[in-house]
Amino acid sequence: MEIKVLGPGCAKCNKTEKLIREVINETLADATVEKITDMMQIASHGVFATPSVIIDNQVKCTGKVPKKEEIKKWLGR
């Protein structure tokens, strides 16, 4: 699975990335995490509220820090 976290690097964005990494470590999910901070790239994904999470090119959430349970659900755990 290819996970992208979109955000310019504010506290909420960093927290989102950290949570996702935690869930991956806990559940041993097979996924890569990429952080996208460049404004042009964020915009080109059609997202305009950060932090956003995109998994395999599907937007999962925008504008909020997701809950751990939500992340687990996305990862199919």
């Binding site: 964005c13 404004m39 915009a43 059609g46 997202v47 305009f48 509220a49 909020k64």
Partner: peptide, 17 residues
């Protein structure tokens, strides 16, 4: 509308486009 001030740029682009 809930939005974090650090999203001002993506929001601007999203609105204008």
């Amino acid at each position: 509308t809930p939005f974090c001030s650090c999203s001002a740029v993506p929001l601007f682009i999203g609105f204008v486009t």
